[in-house]
Nucleic acid binder design. Sequence first.
DNA 1: CGGGCCATTGACCTCGGTCAAGACGTGTGG
DNA 2: CCACACGTCTTGACCGAGGTCAATGGCCCG
Lengths: 242, 242
Amino acid sequence: MTLAPESNPKIQDTPPFRIPLSEADRAFLAGLGATLRRYAPHETIMRQGDDEGRAFIIHSGWSCVHTDLPDGERQIIDFPFSGDIIGLRAYQSPSYISLTSITKLIVFEVPAKALTAAVEHSPRLAGTFLSVAARQRAILVEHLTNVGRRRGAARAAHLLLEIGTRLGGDGQRLASHYECPLTQYDLADALGMTAIHINRILKDLRELDLLSFRHRTVDFINLPATKKFAGFNPSYLLLERI
Amino acid sequence: MTLAPESNPKIQDTPPFRIPLSEADRAFLAGLGATLRRYAPHETIMRQGDDEGRAFIIHSGWSCVHTDLPDGERQIIDFPFSGDIIGLRAYQSPSYISLTSITKLIVFEVPAKALTAAVEHSPRLAGTFLSVAARQRAILVEHLTNVGRRRGAARAAHLLLEIGTRLGGDGQRLASHYECPLTQYDLADALGMTAIHINRILKDLRELDLLSFRHRTVDFINLPATKKFAGFNPSYLLLERI
DNA sequence: CGGGCCATTGACCTCGGTCAAGACGTGTGG
DNA sequence: CCACACGTCTTGACCGAGGTCAATGGCCCG
């Protein structure tokens, strides 16, 4: 696997899927021409409408996948984390989404065709990609349900619970506390609301003794009550292992 | 391919992907144990939370994929059409979505494991599934954008434009008129609103001379104006061919 | 020190939800 | 053939969640 000049050689050179890969698969993946790249915060890595031949696998850092609307607004589709794949598709085509870094971000960049080739080369890899894609679809489905059917406070709480769980790794652990570099504008763009209203909602959630989000830190004050309040059931975050 | 007793032998026995399959792939698909089944209107075919081992490929008819909330509400995720796949995933697991018929519905039912096996057996089939899944993801992304960022009237118009385009088949044709068996409750559940408000929105859209939805029929009165009003760009509906 | 980004809050307004009441159509049973 | 019930559509009155506009303050960084 080629390392970009700016990469840190200490970073492990295999995408951090949480599904075990065979040595052969690792070797094949390493031969695909993947490049480990770093991006500064708030860089546009891929822009909606561009002819894109790349796919991305998140190594570490925060970013968002979003659509752009003609009026300059955006809808954040997902905050992908380590091991998530962006741009898995059959062939090159104009991208319908944008990818923007939020913090410093490290990603594996792979020619999209190479990912397709991987699918065709290794049934096991195909299964891995299928698993990862299925989980990302479940997350997206839950996101739509959240935006479409929950009211503001529950919606915000649900997203913060989901992020806390995804940070845990296996999709089941949930710490009572995590650092979160998202701004209230980011939350608003993910939740289909305005940042001003997000601000009021966060105030409400604090006053309800459910959770506090200040100074880039999320603190769950009463985790069971918050889960109930948000209707949060983490089963959709489970990554099915092969 | 096994035919269920109630099936009509005149129905062609290969899933109607709009991507050409080789004879070998057809034969392999036919050997997977797929069953052609018919459902009556308003039947629950798969329920969220059930342990599901089946996947579905829509043959014909209208249905909806939705999530169910504890309070009895639901969020419609998609109205799948001919060739769309539901339940493509690595292995058996509890379903996080429900599938309900709206009209009479004909589907191919396949053991989910068989689909995975197909992916592992035929690189070409894997690519076909990847293409179909990528398009369905694009549709879902646009749906989230619609619900999160467009206001009611544009949101409703956008959905009706999308459905009209998807009915066309290749994702680019859009008739000025189509029959639509959805109720205003269905639209509301898809768009994250109430049926009462959908009713007022449809009235507004008629009075704006954009479109009319009455008596199970959608008529686009001024198609270019409606597309502009809804911010509708059908490129996300293109099915990339291999 | 100044500029920019972000968070916070108030005043006001509007979109969309809630509640209630009918109208219409269609299929069913008497 | 009629009566009725049920699902769906329609409309009005009212309310509340969330958006808009505006002003302010904190904080970080050049």
